[in-house]
């Protein structure tokens, strides 16, 4: 069991009267690209936020590399990086300054920091524009900046909430390639959520279908398709949510 990266067990999260999570459990193992899919309001973002130490579960637990996210948040923060569903960067900093600022939290030596910034510049593909203030960036450029930030420090676990939302076809493709490359060459485990079934089918080794705060089905894209005897993940989604 020592290759378990993420373990959630009976996670429940309530916001006032709303039950966002209702006993959600799944396990992610090392080197996987694990996808959470499900309709709007299913609880994907809530799950990822709990894992990213932003909010606390009402009951149940979540562990990352054995660290309980509620009890050991500072250990968890050292090994994860989180890309929020909706995120921005500091408008008055340049892209480079933003990378430097974020890298400084992780790296011990200035060389390490510089290497991370260079890596981020490469991932983002923003080139010279990184010298400009973030407020001059388009929505997609912003997303690339943030995604590069999330991957530059080669985290043990990258938690990416809809990583390619808002990107054009070319850049979404580029981002998927990078995510794949990172898991292969740098041993990064990825947990992502997505509404793009093609992307999930292409990227993920494991998929969990979430509906109304519960995992209703889990497996590789292939397993899911044969389980529901359909041809693509979109149909899996339709079938599963109808039943759930």
């Amino acid at each position: 069991m020592n290759n378990v990266v993420v373990e959630t067990k009976n996670l429940v999260k309530t916001f006032g009267d709303i039950k966002a999570l209702n006993g959600l459990s799944f396990t992610v193992t090392q080197g996987e690209i694990f996808g959470l899919i499900g309709p709007n309001g299913a609880g994907k973002t809530t799950t990822l936020r709990i894992l990213a130490t932003l909010i606390k579960p009402s009951s149940g637990y979540a562990k990352i590399f054995g660290y309980d996210v509620e009890k050991n948040p500072s250990e968890v923060r050292r090994i994860i990086s989180y890309l929020p569903e909706e995120a921005g960067a500091y408008k008055n900093l340049s892209g480079f300054e933003y990378f430097e600022f974020m890298a400084n939290f992780y790296h011990q030596s200035p060389q390490e920091g510089r290497a991370a910034v260079e890596e981020a510049a490469k991932i983002s593909g923003l080139g010279e524009r990184l010298k400009d203030r973030v407020k001059t960036y388009s929505k997609g450029m912003n997303r690339r900046l943030l995604l590069a930030r999330a991957l530059m420090m080669k985290p043990k676990l990258a938690i990416l909430d809809e990583p390619t939302s808002g990107l054009d076809v070319v850049h979404a493709f580029h981002v998927r390639r990078i995510i794949q490359e990172y898991t292969k060459t740098h041993g990064v485990t990825v947990l992502l959520s997505s509404h793009n079934m093609l992307e999930v089918e292409f990227l993920c080794n494991q998929v969990a279908l979430v509906n109304e705060g519960k995992v209703i089905s889990q497996g590789s894209p292939h397993e899911l398709k044969s389980h529901y005897s359909v041809n693509n993940l979109e149909d899996v989604f339709m079938e599963a949510t109808k039943l759930g």
Binding site: A52, I80, Y82, A87, F105
Partner: peptide, 14 residues
């Protein structure tokens, strides 16, 4: 407003 807080809260700083 600029949605930078969530990211900041997940970096290794208390």
């Amino acid at each position: 407003e600029e949605k930078t807080l969530e990211t900041l809260l997940t970096v290794p700083i208390s």
